[in-house]
Nucleic acid binder design. Structure first.
Length: 271
DNA sequence: AGTGCGGCCTGTCCGC
DNA sequence: TGCGGACAGGCCGCAC
């Protein structure tokens, strides 16, 4: 399941092969994604040059001459660079043929991802316009979190996973960050003081940075642009470890649904 | 305006 | 061993 570190890992892997390249042709085999792929997309893309490959939240943004291609990997999406004679397999919905001999192929079995075109600045697109700050920028601070918590209520974990609050923190990294910060996932956001929000900001940053450095988390079939798996799953402290001993204190890791998501925590280390 | 929940999908896993 | 059903999970968009 690609979260921010996975998308960033992918972006870094693709960047040098994609930027400056001309799109020679485009083949779309399945248009029924999270939103239907517009019928004009092939015609729009062919002949354009990809100037930059950026990331905003979990969206990859291919900035071209006349606009931007926005790509979200959803739950199960992946992108691979292949040679241009590679035959497509099941669930491989899109091919973008570049002028350097490479083929950029999008695969997404569950089709929760999307493929959008916008002629406007990407950040103005309605799906990106309401997104919160990037967690690895200086806009993500304890003061900011506390201010955002002031006019709402509820447990901290769904708060941390809310894209309007901060982007890129999915279920795995929310669990890990809260463990690292020593904050219980069900703790009310109003009960967390500035000091503990500082711990949470630092923990979130540290967790995401470490995951990026280790190439993302490979739970099922995540792989980077060249098909290599990530290694962060070896660093997971609580996620998926229900019933196992806490690596810090030895107490049993608990699992409980909070905000409709499986939440893993140590009731001894987190309060 | 903030909060909660249904729904979109398929691969995987569990129990019978 | 085979099969059905539950589950996972990002996140939008609607209902309250």
């Amino acid at each position: 399941m690609p979260e921010l570190p996975e998308v960033e890992t992918l972006r870094r892997g693709l960047q040098t092969h994609v930027e400056g390249r001309l799109i020679r042709s485009v083949v779309i085999r399945e248009r029924r994604l999270r939103w239907p792929v517009i019928p004009e997309l092939e015609d729009i893309l062919v002949g354009q040059r990809i100037h930059t490959l950026r990331r905003r939240a979990k969206y990859l943004i291919f900035e071209c001459n006349r606009g931007s291609l926005l790509l979200h990997l959803g739950m199960s999406g992946s992108l691979h660079l292949l040679s241009q004679n590679d035959a497509p397999a099941k669930h491989e919905h899109l091919d973008i043929f570049l002028d350097n001999g490479y083929l950029l192929r999008y695969r997404d079995p569950r089709r929760f991802g999307c493929l959008l075109w916008t002629a406007d600045p990407p950040e103005a697109h309605h799906l990106l316009a309401t997104l919160g700050p990037e967690p690895l920028t200086d806009k993500f601070t304890a003061e900011y979190l506390q201010a955002r918590a002031a006019n709402r209520q509820g447990p901290v974990k769904p708060f941390l996973m809310d894209n309007r609050v901060v982007v890129g923190v999915g279920n795995i990294y929310a669990n890990e960050s809260l463990f690292l910060a020593g904050i219980h996932p069900a703790r009310s956001i109003r009960e967390i003081n500035l000091h503990r929000y500082r711990l949470l900001v630092e923990a979130t940053r540290a967790t995401l940075s470490k995951a990026i450095a280790e190439g993302g988390t490979t739970l099922r079939d995540f792989a980077d642009a060249e098909g290599r798996p990530g290694y962060f799953q070896q660093s997971l402290q609580v996620y998926g470890r229900a019933g196992q001993a806490c690596l810090h204190c030895g107490h049993s890791i608990q699992i409980r649904v909070i905000g409709q998501r499986a939440s893993y925590y140590c009731s001894h280390c987190q309060s």
